[in-house]
Nucleic acid binder design. Sequence first.
RNA 1: GGCCCGUUCGUCUAGUCGGUUAGGACGCCAGGUUUUCAUCCUGGAAAUCAGGGGUUCGAGUCCCCUACGGGCUACCA
Length: 508
Amino acid sequence: MNSRKVRVRFAPSPTGPLHIGGVRTALYNYLFAKKHGGDFLLRIEDTDQNRYVPGAEEYIIESLKWCGLQYNEGVGLGGPHAPYRQSERKDLYKQYADALIEKGYAYYAFDTPEELETIRKQLEAQKITFQYNPATRIRMKNSLTLLPEDVKNRLAAGEHYVIRIKTPEDEEIRVNDLIRGEVSFHSSLMDDKVLYKSDGMPTYHLANVVDDHLMEISHVIRGEEWLPSAPLHVLLYRYLGWEDSMPQFAHLPLLLKPEGNGKLSKRDGDRLGFPVFPLQWTDPKSGEVSSGYRESGYFPEAFINMLSLLGWHPETEQEIFTIEELAQAFSLERVNKSGAKFDPEKAKWFNHQYLITKSNAELAACLKTILAEKGIQTNDCKVEKVCELIKERANLIPDLWNQSDYFFIAPETYDEKTIKKYWKENTPALLNELKNLLLSLNDFEKETIETATHRYVEDNGLSMGQVMNAWRLSLVGAGRGPGMADIASVLGREEVIARMDKALKALG
RNA sequence: GGCCCGUUCGUCUAGUCGGUUAGGACGCCAGGUUUUCAUCCUGGAAAUCAGGGGUUCGAGUCCCCUACGGGCUACCA
């Protein structure tokens, strides 16, 4: 049992965009599979037709692709256990529900949703929560209480029914969790969950267990919200006769809101100003747009690296990992038990770490896209040079533009603070002298400019600050950016002189 | 309400076999480098290990209780 091949799955429900908690679950599954040379599958759990959201499945697939979480089998790819979409496996599940009934581990229930709702409401008034369980099922309308003849007639008449598990009355059910250790539940507190719905679809519980078994899943790595139903799943494996090959469970802690309490939700992102989704998502019904990491200018490697450390810690203090290194270092034993609050600031730091290691050509490609959107014409050589100069200053891809705009567009305004600090009475005279000096140079290479301007400062007993910062103000419009010789050489002599003239005119 | 899980600097966390000045990272602050910003370097503040009881020569580490947080409690996943 322990020597069997590692096969894990990511099994989202297409009810909307995948949020970063889901991506992390997929990531941990992926890393675990990679680490053990196993398989990683994508299964779509669309057994609830009412909650189906168009585009969600495509979104999930595209997200995994962007993150680089390549799966070996699954929706869109196929594989030996196809189909991988539960709605397409619909016919498969009924036989297992029937088998359970036959063995006496499940039963038909004819109570309508309305009837159950009424009972719930009545009990709620008495502050009692209704549970369909060993204690109450004898009072309900099901094949345990009805005459066999009656049941047969109802079924023959096509009456709506569900199939519920027959929970044992007094049994301790132990679930071994790879992250939490042994967790036990008492069966008397569990309910007779519906396994098969009246619409002919299985519920998550049945479909999940059946598919995991059929697909030979060795480890179920999923969110903590599933821990309470784990004993039900254990029971199902047992009743279906699959206990020997039951997968091992690992329930991941949840991702929490950055501030306040509660788990991270769709709303938090845009309220707090950071994405909760890997990709931008437009709600097909409301048209509401939620931002994504990709569109916000994160690199997938950085995004993945950041997520990997949210709830897991390697043995060393290394923080920057390629996905291969992550797979190598990953282990479920080192996954935390407690929920993690997401920190947008650290996410930016991660991106910066990746951004500065990118080649100038790669960054230039990113910047060129932005320039094109803005309709700015330029040449590749310049864009690459600009990227080299400003990469230390950028966190996200859009910063490539935010930190380099002045290379492409002359300043329209001049920063007040910088004016106050560096634009003195003698500044115009200095800039005019500097202008003449620049005009007299044989070429406009960085080194030439640097040598000449430095000598000018020295020969005239000036300070670097008073000359360079005023010059900077005239070319950039503010006190930021790389060295002046760099900026000037990229801008070119003509543009530099024009900007100096413009500043002299504007600031006097 | 019931059941289950959790609780180390603001945040992510190290700490797995009980003996540490409780370590790192992000962020923050200060200083340095730099013509500015950013980077970089150095330093700093920051957790009485949720609280209280035990066990022990000794507990963040083991046990119990309490508090707080979270999850689940659908013919949703």
